[in-house]
Each structure stands twice: as structure tokens, then as C-alpha cells.
Amino acid sequence: MRRQQAFTLLEMLIVLGIVVLTLLISWPSMHRAVQKNAERQFWQIFRQAWQAAQVRSKTSQESTRVVYLRHRNLIVFSWPNDSEQIRVPETLFVKRFNDIEMKKTGYVSPQTEEFISTLDGTDYQMRIQLAWGSYHVQAIQKGPAGNHTR
């Protein structure tokens, strides 16, 4: 009988050790990338909900209220007979968020809401402009000495 060639236990342990070491080294950067992607996805979902509220306001003549529920970490868009909830990622700290009322015409009073990313200290300022309720999110990143850069 011929003896079949196979990996020895030692060789398998060495390969397994290399795989585990590779995973341990890459885990923090992978986890950070997932968290950063969650922040980006939040801003996209928020923009879609905002635009849908504007269209609904103008076509159905329904006002929309946007509130932040701190105890549940949710931003809620509510209008007569329905609502939409958006979960704020754990990496975004809501520094300031006043209740927003989008009128039946789509008009929103000008104001600024603030979020801070705990990932890199980015300060997100959501500035709601006068007129038809458009807004702009400006990301201000802190430099190495704590100075703000854009």
C-alpha cells in the first residue's frame, strides 16, 4: 500500500495561525470602513427622505415634521397618517437637532443642525437654507492640532 500525502498537523496549525494573524491585523481597518460606510449611507437615506417629504408637501399639501428621538437614536419624518424612521449610526453624535417643520408648500425655516463623527472628529453642519427648504451638509474635519480644516 502506498501512503497518501497530506498536510501534517503542524503545517495546518501554521497556516491557521497565519490566517488568524492576518484577520487580527486587518480587523480594525475593516471595522472602521464598515462604520464609515454606515455614516455615508445615513446621509444618503436622509437626503432621500428629505426629498420625498418635499415632493409630498408640494403635491399632497401635507406638512412634514422632522424630529430627533435621542432615547432611540432615530430621526423621524412624520406626516399625516404615516412616518419614516432613520437610525442614526452609533458613530454619529447628534450635537444639535431642533425639530423641523416642512410646511405644505415645502418651505422650511432656516436653521443649522450639528452632528459629530466619533470616527475622525468630523463636524457635520446641516444648514437648511431659506426659501424652499433645501439644505447643505458641510463636513469640517479637525486637523492634527485640533484645528478645523475643510
Score class of each variant (00 low, 15 high):
3 R>I: 09
8 T>L: 07
12 M>R: 05
13 L>F: 08
16 L>Q: 04
17 G>V: 00
18 I>D: 06
18 I>P: 04
19 V>K: 05
22 T>A: 10
22 T>Y: 06
31 H>N: 09
35 Q>R: 10
38 A>C: 10
38 A>N: 11
39 E>G: 07
39 E>T: 06
41 Q>Y: 13
44 Q>P: 01
45 I>S: 03
47 R>S: 11
49 A>Q: 14
49 A>M: 12
55 V>R: 14
56 R>L: 12
64 T>V: 14
69 L>Q: 14
71 H>A: 12
74 L>W: 11
75 I>Q: 08
77 F>Q: 03
78 S>K: 13
80 P>W: 06
81 N>A: 03
83 S>N: 14
84 E>L: 13
87 R>M: 14
88 V>F: 10
92 L>C: 10
93 F>S: 07
97 F>P: 06
100 I>G: 00
101 E>F: 15
102 M>E: 02
102 M>T: 03
103 K>F: 08
105 T>M: 13
106 G>L: 04
114 E>I: 03
116 I>R: 02
118 T>V: 05
122 T>G: 01
127 R>F: 08
127 R>M: 12
130 L>R: 02
131 A>D: 00
132 W>N: 09
134 S>G: 07
135 Y>L: 03
135 Y>M: 01
137 V>S: 02
139 A>T: 01
142 K>D: 00
146 G>L: 02
150 R>M: 09
